[in-house]
Design a protein around this nucleic acid. Structure first.
Lengths: 269, 269
DNA sequence: CCTGTTGGTTTATTATGTGAACCATCGGTT
DNA sequence: AACCGATGGTTCACATAATAAACCAACAGG
């Protein structure tokens, strides 16, 4: 592995639940030598990608990423442009909507919107990685990635939090297949308790999966009617978002979506 | 120089005006070998910090920075928290307000706000680096950094755009000294034509300069009254922003600011 | 006063990154 | 078509730069 990759791997260790990390812990987590780790972090600090808290000497993500992010949004406005659509989706469904992106093989929630309607909401945190195996977004994207992607996930841990629905390998394969066959994915109580989640994949101009659009609904108030309308609203919103990007779903998915949107029409050979 | 630093230097080449760069040009700009450059970029791509446009093969900033930026804002909400204050400042002054941060020795505009009032506005672009020598923000921060910082700037080019006020070395020294002596900086026609700019430095909890808060006013409509009120409004807003961060100006600056805010009171020994 | 932390530094060893030269491909000119 | 000057990408001998282990000073708790 290249040295640069090692340094960048260190960045991946910073998460929402672990935003500041000391040198020793960082070395432990990354499996690198402390001296190595120190040097790498020093270089990251030098460029502002990471900064060191003066009091505790812990490291945390630095201000340079803000410039890069602003520049990214200026060149490829994926996030900001999609936000209004996300908000409309949240308003229409009355549930939390969120969009996640496939970055470096991981699924990262980058934007979300809450409905104004209900007091109870499914809360989301951005900048968090979603596990492929336990989220509808994960299933939705896996359905349209190379088979190797699913294989990689199956090699990893498939644990769900205690009290939630466990996911076995066969289970996951079936869920991903179902997501592909149906055009959208649905999960319940796999990632968060009492949350039912619906998701569709998002594609770029090259027809590559880029991420997923999802609605996370409070299970107790999920009606049968909502079970039918939410996928339709998801599909409509996904189309809007992809239109912004110049992306489009593969023909196969497009056909599935049309069936979902117009369930009364029979497909005519 | 470490390999990681070289890779990160490549990231710095992407700017607002040059958001996508091909391999050869990147190697030229960075002064590295093409093969080296290729390998470094490949590693950056692998981690999503950079992505390659499929059609042109050019590189651009990748989606991974969005996660990092969201994480940064979640850990240290400098930008988002200050935004309302910035907007209030823009509204109060009727001019464009912007905040820039000192990151890795460079001054980067990270947020700005426009006034609703006037049709004519000084436009800003975020994620752009401000030249120290030609901006009031630059003078403001240089006044409170180590002398070496000013020395470094004096070593570099002091050019201004054609038609604008040129800045000599002595000039710059005098301007920085004035900014320090007065507690705020003021420039006219050095960075943009017909723009007068006012700025104050911002400090963190350790008393280190972190950036600058500035108001960029359209010179034609700048009244004598505004010349007096804008610095006061800047100071008030800077105090608010620093309060959010837990920062505070050094005692010397604090005293200067008090004099500016209450110009009628005589300082009593 | 011992023990286990922490962040940080030094060293010889060696793995890693490097630059020059090379290829294949593209788009425009002659 | 043949040529030119670009481009992105690859190869390989060589030297620089990264590494791991051991060490240090400082701190906290028992």
């Amino acid at each position: 592995m290249g040295t640069t990759s090692k340094a960048l791997t260190l960045l991946d260790l910073f998460t929402r639940s672990r935003p500041q990390i000391g040198l020793s812990e960082l070395a432990r987590l990354s499996g690198t030598n402390k001296a190595t780790c120190y040097r790498l972090m020093s270089e990251l600090v030098e460029h502002g990608l990471v900064e060191q808290v003066v009091s505790s000497k812990e490291y945390r993500i630095g201000p340079a990423v803000l410039r890069l992010a602003a520049l990214r949004e200026a060149t490829v406005p994926t996030r900001e442009a999609a936000l209004p659509i996300l908000q409309a989706l949240a308003a229409a469904t009355g549930e939390t909507a969120h969009m996640s992106h496939l970055v470096a093989g991981q699924l990262v929630t980058l934007s979300f919107a809450y409905p104004a309607a209900h007091g109870m909401r499914v809360m989301m945190e951005d900048a968090d990685r979603l596990p492929f195996h336990a989220t509808s977004s994960g299933h939705a994207v896996l359905g349209w990635m190379e088979d190797a992607a699913l294989a990689r996930v199956l090699e990893g841990p498939l644990a769900t939090a205690p009290g939630l629905v466990p996911v076995t390998a066969d289970d996951l394969r079936a869920r991903v297949a179902a997501a592909r066959a149906r055009g959208w994915a649905e999960t319940a109580n796999t990632f968060e308790a009492d949350v039912s989640s619906f998701a569709v994949p998002l594609f770029d101009a090259q027809g590559q999966v880029q991420g997923a659009l999802a609605v996370a609904a409070a299970a107790p108030r999920l009606t049968d009617a909502a079970r039918i309308t939410i996928p339709r609203q998801l599909i409509a919103a996904a189309r809007e978002i992809m239109a912004l990007w110049g992306g489009h779903p593969p023909a196969e998915l497009s056909a599935l979506w049309r069936k979902t949107e117009q369930p009364t029409e029979k497909v005519q050979g």
